[in-house]
């Protein structure tokens, strides 16, 4: 991404309408300069996991005793799941958990993968900044699958009980033949994606803790070994025309 970003001057005329955060060049002098390097060794493999409901002071790492236990992915549907342990010592109703949810002690976090553009991860080392583009991001949220499981079980139990009561009555059975083609309903949109996601099997992923050697070895690849300066193939004007979105006047052919 070594492309020249177009420079704009901040005209005083615009000041009046701007927010409070415009930095003036004069009272914000350059203190120090660092070289920036671009690394793409992990370009296809760097994924950003976010835990929106977890404070950053308490990461899911083994060092805190709350490391991630297990992880799996549905690649086509773009669904990722990780299991984390539940702290059963605090704020945990053992009796209720035992009674209702088979003493659940892990929690599943899940999220759907998105591929944002223009995001990078930087490593600052030896006064050098090394940047690697992020391939995908996932926000992982708790899913409470045990609650769903319980409620489905309960409902089935009720159904079964009703069925038992009813099965004593004699009922006429009617048979009908259906052609195979009509049976599979045609879903579209969200229902289709749900069905596809439901049909896909989870693929197990090996998880390495933040502090493990494997993690640190991979992290080394964030540092670029190529220290040559990169030249842009794209001219500034070309770049500008690439990002521009001019108005297309259908009747312009007549006027020009």
């Amino acid at each position: 991404m070594d492309v020249e970003v177009p420079k704009f001057q901040n005209t005083p005329a615009q000041k009046g309408i701007n927010g409070p955060d415009i930095e003036e060049e004069d009272d914000d002098p350059v203190v120090k300069e660092f070289p920036i390097f671009f690394s793409n060794k992990l370009a296809e493999n760097l994924n950003l996991f976010q835990y929106p409901v977890r404070p950053s002071e308490r990461p899911y790492v083994d060092a805190y005793g709350e490391g991630i236990l297990d992880s799996r992915i549905k690649r086509d549907a773009g669904i990722l799941e990780v299991d984390v342990p539940i702290d059963t010592t605090k704020f945990y109703d053992k009796t209720k958990a035992a009674k209702k949810w088979d003493s659940v002690n892990t929690q599943t976090l899940s999220g759907s993968i998105s591929h944002p553009e223009g995001q990078m991860v930087g490593v600052f080392k030896d006064d050098e900044l090394h940047l690697t583009p992020v391939f995908s991001t996932v926000q992982l949220r708790p899913q409470f699958k045990y609650v769903d499981k319980k409620s489905i079980e309960d409902r089935e139990a009720v159904k079964l009980a009703q069925k038992d009561a009813r099965s004593k009555e004699v009922k006429a059975v009617q048979m009908s033949a259906k052609s195979t083609g009509e049976q599979a309903p045609k879903y579209s949109g969200a229902l289709l994606s749900f069905k596809q996601a439901d049909d896909e099997e989870f693929v197990h992923l090996d998880w390495y803790d933040r502090d493990s050697d494997e993690s640190w070895n991979v992290a080394d690849r964030l540092i670029s070994s190529n220290k040559e300066s990169l030249d842009s193939d794209t001219l500034p004007l070309e770049y500008i025309s690439m990002i521009s979105c001019p108005h297309l006047d259908p009747s312009s052919e007549i006027h020009n």
């Binding site: 704009f8 901040n10 927010g19 955060d21 415009i22 500008i240």
Partner: peptide, 13 residues
């Protein structure tokens, strides 16, 4: 985080 700058640059374009 920089709405003024953002709006300004967009307008310049």
């Amino acid at each position: 985080r920089f709405p003024g700058k953002f709006v300004n640059e967009f307008r310049q374009l």
